[in-house]
Design a protein around this nucleic acid. Structure first.
Lengths: 237, 237
DNA sequence: ACAGCAAGGTTGTATATACAAGAATATACC
DNA sequence: GGTATATTCTTGTATATACAACCTTGCTGT
């Protein structure tokens, strides 16, 4: 039995989802929602409050509650795959497999994976879409010694990240985040109008055996931002 | 007049702060708090709920509410100031103070700092240079209630971040990282040739009292990358 | 015409109450 | 002794109500 305030949250999210309630548009007042959903004002209020915390709505006293400008937001803390993040937002995730084959390791990738330059490694390339709109171009290199069956995976229902988590449990990761201008090929794949700034995350993941994979994740700056709670590591200690 | 639930939050925070309530120790139940603070259970509950959201407490149904381990998730990304980072690389850090004055809070900033829109807050703007080359444009808004002497600081030898760490020890931070195109003014300040992609970090920092400051840190994509080790968080939660 | 006030709608705070759900402990029973 | 069962304490959900704070709008009096 899902709680009533959850049901209301979902209903409101859907209205926004389907464009019935546009950005910056005022959503029904607490009293109006209470009547519509046959609940008390406090219950409707809770739904609104939590959506405000999630960044879906904004509100100000005396004025009303409004649909917040939309931007997808990724979490930095956990190493999670994009599919989970998207479905948690209640959106639809899909992916196109662009490439999946063995390649010779270039210098940069060889260093990242800690394998000899020129040795054979596995490469995959996927385009992740949120509600049909490209949000991530995933270019991944995998250490074949640790994941020999990588090329046999379909990657239709399961993302590479999910598969790797199963066969080689991750213990550590190193991230490098930067703002870059996309190449023309990348622009086309991400359906960008021009050379709009992109957020690139380079991620090396380790299992107990060594470096498992090296991934470059490219996100359009206008459709993706990375957010998270971080505890302060005090500099004095 | 500060709301009652805020007062209760502060009282609880103080108990934890001063070590009266240790980590993992159970805090008084909602009913007990209601009696102690002469309020209804719902009000005490709200205080607890918000502290849970802030990560100060953890709770579970049927068991009780407990003081959260202070650094629960291991090492995330340290919040360090740019000056330290640069000098650690063996380079020379310098900074230009561009602006330091009280301003009226715009909507976005007011929300970030949790102050009424239009109220007076402190703003500072600095340009950080590494070996004479601009690497960070720091635009910072500070809550005057928590840091009343902010405008009296020189910020020549000490960065705003260092000063704030002293006067209001940080307990938590929220980060938002995105790739953006710099405005023309920002291009000029950062000595950029054209609209090169920039990495923007929006950082809200909290002390036990509330939101201390909101900073927008803009870095040229070609001269700055963000890196860090991340421990994998177990997927079970 | 215009300043000022009043009214109504909105979110924000606070309270009292009731019952549901989860977890530990005590108790009764076999 | 071991296993159910009941009790009790905890948090979680839901409602009804009251008033405060804030904003907009429209009206009113000069």
């Amino acid at each position: 039995m899902i709680p009533k305030f959850e049901a209301i949250k979902q209903a409101i999210s859907e209205e926004i989802e389907q464009g019935h309630w546009q950005e910056h548009e005022q959503v029904p007042s607490e009293n109006a929602l209470a009547e519509r959903f046959a609940c008390s004002r406090m219950t409707a209020r809770r739904a609104l409050t939590e959506l405000v915390e999630q960044g879906v709505l904004v509100r100000s006293q005396g004025l009303g509650t409004f649909v917040a400008p939309f931007k997808s937001q990724g979490s930095m803390m956990a190493i999670r795959n994009i599919a989970e993040e998207i479905s948690e937002r209640g959106h639809q995730h899909s992916a196109q497999l662009l490439l999946l084959k063995p390649v010779a390791a270039e210098a940069e990738v060889a260093i990242a994976l800690a394998v000899p330059a020129g040795s054979t490694i596995f490469r995959s390339s996927l385009l992740h879409l949120e509600n049909g709109q490209p949000v991530q171009l995933e270019d991944r290199y995998v250490n074949p010694a640790l994941v020999p069956d990588y090329l046999e995976q379909p990657f239709s229902s399961q993302t590479p990240h999910e598969y790797l988590s199963q066969v080689a449990p991750l213990t550590q990761a190193h991230h490098l985040i930067e703002a870059v201008a996309p190449s023309e090929v990348q622009q086309r794949l991400l359906s960008l109008e021009g050379p709009e700034p992109c957020l690139q995350i380079c991620r090396r993941t380790w299992s107990s055996q060594g470096v498992v994979s090296y991934a470059r994740l490219l996100h359009p700056g206008s459709r993706f931002r990375l957010g998270g709670h971080l505890m302060v590591e005090s500099t004095s200690r």
